[in-house]
Simulated scan of single mutants.
Amino acid sequence: MKTRGTRFAAVTAVALVASMSLAACGNKDEESPAAGDGGSESSATTVTFLPKNLGNPYFETSDAGGEKAVGEFDGTYDEVGPDAAAPDAQVPFIDTAAQQGINALVISANDPTALCDSINAARDAGTKVVTFDSDTSPDCRDLFINQATAEGIAKVQVDLITEQIGDSGEIAILSAAANATNQNAWIKLMEEQLEADHPDVKLVDTVYGDDDDQTSFDKTAALLSDHPNLKGIISPTTVGVAAAARYLSSSEFKGKVALTGLGTPNQMRDYVKDGTVTSFALWNPADLGYLAAYAAKALADGDITGEEGDSFEAGDLGSYEVGADGAVLLGDPFVYDADNIDDFDF
Rank of each mutant, 00 (worst) to 15 (best):
P138W: 06
F144I: 08
T131R: 11
N120W: 02
P138Q: 08
G126F: 08
G126I: 14
R123Y: 06
T136D: 00
R141D: 01
V129T: 12
D142T: 10
N146R: 15
S137Q: 13
R141L: 03
S137A: 11
C140G: 02
G126H: 10
A121Y: 00
T127D: 12
R141V: 03
S134G: 12
D133L: 06
D133T: 11
K128W: 08
V129N: 08
N146D: 13
N146W: 01
A122W: 05
L115G: 00
A114Q: 07
D135L: 12
F132P: 01
D117L: 09
S118P: 05
T136E: 01
D133G: 05
A114V: 15
S118A: 15
T127E: 14
D124G: 10
D139T: 13
V130E: 03
R123Q: 15
S137Y: 04
V130N: 04
S137V: 10
A114N: 05
D142C: 09
F132L: 06
N146C: 11
F132R: 11
C140D: 01
D133I: 09
D117C: 02
A122V: 12
D133H: 13
T136C: 09
I119L: 08
L143Q: 10
P138M: 02
F132T: 04
R123S: 13
T127V: 15
A121D: 14
